[in-house]
Structure formats: structure tokens, C-alpha cells
Design a protein around this nucleic acid. Structure first.
Lengths: 185, 185
DNA sequence: TGACATTGATTAGGTTCCTAATAATTAGGT
DNA sequence: ACCTAATTATTAGGAACCTAATCAATGTCA
């Protein structure tokens, strides 16, 4: 038997926010706690993912870019397109490409039609690198999820979907108010 | 009615990993998908949190540090202690403190007993800043969670707890193998 | 007491992200 | 054809993280 949710022990970085509920009686402390656990889990997952990748001599950003170059067949592989797919700015892609090109994992080829544009290509070295890292990476992320059974995974997906929808709403509403302080402050 | 989990549409940054399952038949594609959704949700939550905080002229790291200074009564407020609580390195705390001190939100006081040590204190300006930002921040994070009802929140907490336990195990096992390539590669 | 390790904070340098500004090229409208 | 708009990639500079190296102060112990 798993003990009920008493993981309250130590999330010092996050639980300071719980104090806030004292000054806002209409705020639900348990709702705050849920938010913090979500933030914490995401944070730790991302951190550990990065740590695992460091063992292989790469990091989240670079690895992701290589994977995208290998698998994403939809669209072109210009920096602009990669930025769009990866959800980061073009400037970020430029920086990542600089590093990857220096290491010989990708190359930038001029586009003969549009002289502003650049086509990014995975080199043989880059391919080999991916081959080498892939099994270990797959095992890492499998080992995280296999702690949940099929039903639990399904439950989690449904809940995450709801949260993502809400995040999308908030993000849009925030984008609409541009750089003003949001109305709810 | 919510549509069943068909949010498969666009997570291009993440779904490239699904391709990997083709080369590893023993890998469960649905498990991969769950992992990716978790990674994605965490990523987006963190990103949006940072964006909201930017509206208030601060960021995750600095805001967290201020909140810790205000609420964490356990232990001292030396940079080392703050680093421990926040789960970042001391060097990171040094950098954050530099910024916060420059803005007049904190001050570094020499410890009369241990001359190596420094006590960090929230200034009146820092307090006022927190007072100003707090309501808006509370509303933001409430609005995320209130998309789930009580039962769903409880479900989510249980699932997140399981994942956190697994992450802890992996992290420990990884720490034990130090800087070697993990056995499972 | 003196050598040595430990501890606290910082510095130096690197990475991955950001925004804003810049430079080159292309496209559109008159 | 020409001026302006938009688009592509990059640069510059900043933030929040990291590791490794440094420096000062403190503990330890033979």
C-alpha cells in the first residue's frame, strides 16, 4: 500500500507560497498545493532530463534540435522553421546551431533560391551521435513512466490535457492584453 | 463533453521522440506519449509562470528568492542555506543576490561570528514589492488549478507523487554512479 | 603551533533561453 | 522601376542556471 499524499515533507522552494493563502482566505490551500506539486514535478523532470543528457555530452536544447532534424519531415529545415517547431525564438536556434556546427553535428547550406535563407542538415557525425545516445535516452524516459500502470497513465493524460487547455486560454488572454498589466491584478 | 485524448495535434518539439519507438519494439508508444505530455506540460507551465512574472518586472529565480526570504523561518538566510532550500548552486544564489541587491530588494549583512558568512535580509523596498505582486500571482496560479475539480486535483496529486518518487529513485541511482556512463546504456 | 582539509562565498566561463536592434534580401503597390 | 513592407538570419546584451577554480576563514590533529 502506498501511503496517502503526505509528501508534504520537503518542497521548501515551493511551499513558501502556501503561506500566502493565509492573507487570501478565499484562496484554497489545497489548490495551491496542487499547483506547486505540478510546478515541482515539471521542474524536477526537466532538471533530471538535462542531467541524464549531460552524461551523454549534450543538453536538452541541442538534443531536441538534432532529433527534430532527424525526424521532422514536415516543412523545411530553415532556422525559422525549426524555431517554430521547437517553440523558441530564431535567435535561440542560431545559438544552438552555432554550437552544433562547431561540434560538426550539423551544417548550414545556403538556399539557392532564397539567398536570405539557410538549410540546416544533419551530418554523418550527427547521425552517429544520435544512434549512440538513443538507447540510453529511451530507457531513461521509459523508466519514468513505467511507475504508472495503464489506467494511471490514461488518467494522467486526461488531467494534463485539461491543464494544457487552461494554460492555452491564459496564454491567449495574456497575449491579447499585450504588455499591459493584466486586468486581474 | 471533452473529446478523448486527441491532443496529438501539435507537440512537434516533443513528438519526434515517438519515432524512436519504431526502433525499439519493446517500448510502449503510449508510455512515451505520457512522458512527453508530462514534459510538455511542465515546460509550458514554467514558461507561462515566467512570462506572468515578467509582467511584474521579475522572474522565477528572483521572485522565489524573495518569497523564501519572507517566509522561510527554518534555518538561517546565508547564501549556502538559500541555495540548499532553493535547490540551486551557491553560485546561482550569488548571481541572483547581486541583481536583487542592485535593485535594493535585499542586503547582505556580515555575520559577526563567522567572518566567511553573510546574512541576507529583505529590505523594506523588497517587502513592498512582494506586497504589490502577490495578489496577481496568487490569482494566476489559482486560475490554473481551478480547471480541475476536487476529485481531479486529488487524482493528480497521487499521480504526481508516484512520479516524484520514481524521479527520486532514478536521481539517487544516477548520483551513485557519479560521472560514469550509466549501466543501462 | 603548523600543516592540511573543510567550508563559505565569489569569480570565470559556458549554456540555453529571452528581447531588441541590425543587415540583407525579397515582395508588393503605385 | 522604385520606395516601402515584410521576412531571414544574425548580433548584442541580459537572465538564470551550471561546473570548476579561487580565496579567505575556520577546524583539526599530530
Amino acid at each position: 500500500m502506498r501511503e496517502p499524499v503526505t509528501l508534504l515533507k520537503a518542497l521548501p522552494r515551493y511551499d513558501v507560497f502556501l503561506e500566502e493563502t493565509k492573507d487570501f482566505p478565499h484562496l484554497d490551500a489545497s489548490a495551491c498545493y496542487t499547483f506547486l506539486q505540478l510546478l515541482k514535478t515539471g521542474d524536477e523532470l526537466l532538471a533530471l532530463d538535462n542531467q541524464i543528457l549531460s552524461t551523454f555530452g549534450t543538453r536538452h536544447g541541442r538534443f531536441n534540435l538534432l532529433m527534430m532534424l532527424k525526424h521532422c519531415t514536415v516543412g523545411t529545415t530553415t532556422p525559422a522553421d525549426l524555431a517554430e517547431k521547437a517553440g523558441v525564438t530564431r535567435a535561440t536556434i542560431t545559438g544552438l546551431l552555432d554550437g552544433l556546427e562547431r561540434d560538426g553535428f550539423v551544417e548550414r547550406c545556403p538556399d539557392p533560391v532564397n539567398r536570405r535563407s539557410v538549410q540546416v542538415k544533419l551530418t554523418a557525425t550527427g547521425q552517429e551521435f544520435l544512434e549512440k545516445v538513443r538507447p540510453g535516452y529511451c530507457r531513461w524516459f521509459t523508466s519514468v513512466v513505467e511507475t504508472l500502470n495503464q489506467d494511471e497513465q490514461q488518467q494522467l493524460l486526461v488531467l494534463l490535457e485539461k491543464i494544457q487547455i487552461r494554460l492555452g486560454e491564459i496564454s491567449n488572454q495574456y497575449r491579447r492584453t499585450a504588455n499591459q498589466i493584466p486586468a486581474q491584478l
